[in-house]
Design a protein around this nucleic acid. Structure first.
Lengths: 152, 152
DNA sequence: CTTGAAAAGAACTGCCT
DNA sequence: AGGCAGTTCTTTTCAAG
């Protein structure tokens, strides 16, 4: 099991993280490696599970979903069954784009998308409030966000 | 400005969101379109800015960053200058992977990555606490998360 | 919008240093 | 492990119906 990641690997990760569309050849040029060498490293990183599937970012605003709200939710009833029930129910709501199980003031943190505030109110009342075991709740409306490269 | 998105476009978006790796030909097969037709629609969606760059998901755990913490931060001092100062300082912290400017109980939500809890404490004390204008703060440790397809 | 074909480019393989 | 050269595949792109 040689899971050794060296500086060249890290350089590659930095590059592909910024632009996932890049081919092995282009990555090689960026980190000063030949095309096959870069390709071999990329495949290795994929095999190691470090480089996982690509993801396509959609501009939800342009699709008419202009409102994003983060919901912090505390469950009233705990226990394994409650968590499972809650997760099953929450993942079935189309407007929920992300479910984060967390430790702290809340048990779950949801990222919810809606067309506008009236639409969000509908989702909140009809779907979120109907979730099993929901206790305290808190909402934060997203104004803007920025993704950063991160460590490495 | 004809930003008309029809059902076929939405079908395409659903497909590519599920698997960003496949292009034109495969997408065409999935939504029952010829390869060039699907390709034209994809390019149009890209030109409209709806389909934004691909993103490569890294397995941060396998890279030794096993701890993810969400920080809710309330600024003690507001005003345009404070926000700008805070954002400039916070985006310079390597461990901060995401900055969300929100409305509600907190002003900002940060996604912070660390190697382990001692490492997170270091980031918290040396970097986060040193941010200009930080008031009340709340932390949630990530246990697990799930991404969902979303509406469309 | 479709089919069909040519051109371009990327992925992969051996072999050698 | 990296580079070179070559093969094979996919994808893009164009022409014509």
């Amino acid at each position: 099991m040689t899971e050794a990641i060296d500086d060249t690997d890290r350089a590659i990760l930095r590059v592909v993280q910024a632009n996932a569309r890049l081919s092995a050849g282009a990555v090689g040029r960026a980190v000063d490696l030949s095309q096959p060498a870069a390709w071999r490293r990329l495949r290795r990183l994929r095999d190691l599970g470090i480089l996982r599937g690509r993801e396509l970012t959609l501009d939800l605003e342009k699709l008419g979903f202009g409102v994003t709200v983060f919901l912090g939710i505390k469950l009233a009833t705990k226990g394994r069954v409650s968590l499972d029930d809650f997760e099953r129910a929450v993942t079935a709501i189309p407007e929920v784009r992300r479910v984060e199980h967390v430790l702290g003031r809340y048990d779950y943190r949801l990222r919810v998308t809606a067309r506008d505030l009236p639409d969000f109110e509908r989702v909140l009342r009809r779907r979120i409030m109907a979730l099993p075991g929901v206790g305290e709740m808190e909402a934060n409306v997203l104004l803007s966000e920025e993704r950063l490269p991160g460590p490495l």
